[in-house]
Design a protein around this nucleic acid. Structure first.
Lengths: 353, 353
DNA sequence: TTGTAAGCGTTATCAG
DNA sequence: CTGATAACGCTTACAA
């Protein structure tokens, strides 16, 4: 014998009113001029029956499901969990749930995730875009479906058209410049970059950007190594280790910039495996500034993303759009954040020699 | 002008059939004897219109939302994200989505999470129970609401009644015994335990259990230190550091068992801050075996939980129940997993002295 | 073979 | 002040 979830109908019946009456009362509608006695009765019955409205039915009826989806590229990366956590906190304050989809750093799978979210009829989507070209198309679909979309992405390349949707942008240039300047000052002349790419993701303009940055500071192209790996810690470790093992000492970088903190961790272990000390032999800089970074044996020097600010800005942008949905101030919004180099314990002067 | 999501009605209209006809055709119902021509037309139109059924409406109608909720105690702990990831993979194969709620290691908030999940009308819930007494009540509510529930928990204490719901149990005793035996063999005589507790969680019988374990091996109570902290990395670090700083050398443990790998990481940093080397001065053992453990400068010795197996067993138990929902073989199911000590690089013989 | 009508749990509109 | 009735998008008897 199942005790079913109490429905509005049940509450109404037990309280001796019609369902709609119960509805108006429970929702504290101003035009509910029900007698004080009736109100009380309805509330009491609702309480007794443990009544909770069905979000599903509610959503179907009102068109809003009070839910916002986030497509998380990598649930195993603390950066994303930190972001999700902040976003969820911010949204919950306004009565919205956050629904996560984990796309596992697979570009193809990401579109599945988006569809899945849309099928569940959420109100809006926040989306980490790591490959503009590939993502534009299906993000457009979300808009067609009349969903609010906020993209989390780098700023559009100079000269490129503006993004067709709202976005929270994060500009890494300042952070990279600070980090590189810092390393150069410490005497480093051989650099490596370790970039984790999603399945199906193209390297974009990154190698060129790093090259430009370094050449402007007198580092020749042959002293600028660009390595790519997947988002598996294991792969990050393997790629850097194999590089170190495969190259003669003069090709070993003295400074490594890993494109996320997790990659920095994997690379540091690789360095250790090859008998190098950090930062003695190799200085390492990560990107993200995940909390974990400060609890490693060497506190990780990194390029910080303002995670909390970004998440809160995302929430606000989303919420504002939802609020003024129909008036639809069609102007595309964007807000840009900067990154910042944080010097800790994994960077030091290049050993004299 | 909004391009709305295409509804079944739209497809039917454009294909010149009634909605139900379209429904039967699209769902490939055997009793659809529609003409081949009609079928084709309907499929083509659905394609053109990018038709996707609304899970919400579907759920309301059929009673199944093809979604399963998981209440995650700590999204920042890689153990839980690894578990979630495995669970999601397993469920997705059967067409179920996994919906995460993050309870932030707050016992009170956990019940909110459960309600939130129930409001969204998922089909079933998987739930990490870390404090039996407190969780029993509101898990019972889920059952009242006719939801399938699987609890992830330790085995019930001897003599305690069986759990009133299905459960995946994880028994830490074997792992702890192996770890302690190993440490004793290495000559350790002063132990510390670092236990992360949720807000509102009681320590349960853990200190007693450790005491018993150690006393049976000739370690006196005064050489068995039990420390508690929150689930914040920062707090894990702080608690162990403050302990080390506050005690005279003879009270310093030579072996630490942290009750999860993250706590081990925080504690190792604390040890380093106080000038101790790991494992030279202090051997450290974690619990969980998160992937990250193998990429630290010292590969973390740990008590492994079979994460993937547990997640898959959870999925299967859930799915079986859903399948045979109404016949309801009322017998409570449970499956128990064991833990295992994995010796890596953070444990070594106690330094002679 | 196809169409009509009812219902899942809500809320909104409009009479009583 | 309260109560039918319709609608949200879908499936499923059942009738044509």
């Amino acid at each position: 014998m199942f005790i079913m979830r109490a429905r509005l109908k049940d509450v109404a019946a037990k309280a001796g009113v019609a369902p709609n009456t119960a509805s108006t009362i429970l929702n504290r509608k101003p035009n509910s001029w029900a007698s004080e006695e009736t109100r009380e009765r309805v509330f009491k019955v609702a309480e007794e029956l443990n009544y909770r409205p069905s979000r599903t039915a509610l959503g179907l009826r009102t068109g809003s499901f009070k839910a916002i989806g986030l497509v998380v590229p990598d649930l195993h990366n603390p950066f994303y969990t930190a972001f999700s956590d902040c976003l969820e906190r911010a949204l919950r304050k306004f009565g919205y749930d956050l629904i996560l989809e984990h796309s596992r750093e697979d570009m193809d799978y990401q579109s599945k995730c988006l569809l899945s979210l849309l099928d569940r009829q959420i109100d809006a989507v926040a989306y980490f875009v790591n490959d503009l070209d590939k993502h534009l198309d299906f993000l457009a679909k979300a808009k067609e479906a009349d969903k609010t979309v906020v993209a989390l992405t780098g700023p559009p390349p100079k000269g490129a058209p503006h993004l067709p949707f709202d976005s929270i942008q994060i500009d890494f240039t300042s952070g990279f410049i600070e980090a590189v300047d810092h390393l150069i000052e410490l005497g480093h002349q051989r650099f490596a970059f370790l970039s984790a790419l999603s399945k199906g993701q193209s390297a974009d303009g990154r190698p060129e950007m790093f090259n430009q940055l370094l050449q402007a500071r007198g580092v020749t192209e042959e002293n600028n190594i660009y390595l790519t790996c997947s988002h598996e810690l294991e792969d990050m470790h393997r790629v850097f280790k194999e590089y170190l093992e495969s190259q003669p000492p003069q090709r070993h970088p003295t400074a490594l910039i890993a494109l996320n903190d997790l990659a920095a961790i994997g690379a540091m272990r690789a360095a250790a495996d090859c008998g190098f000390s950090v930062p003695g032999d190799i200085s390492v800089v990560g990107v993200d500034d995940i909390p974990l970074g400060c609890f490693l044996p060497q506190r990780l020097s990194t390029i910080r993303q303002p995670i909390k600010d970004m998440a809160e800005a995302t929430a606000m942008m989303l919420l504002n759009r939802l609020r003024s949905s129909s008036e639809s101030s069609t102007a595309v919004q964007s807000k840009c954040f900067n990154t910042q180099f944080v010097c800790r314990e994994t960077t030091s002067a290049v050993s004299s020699g």
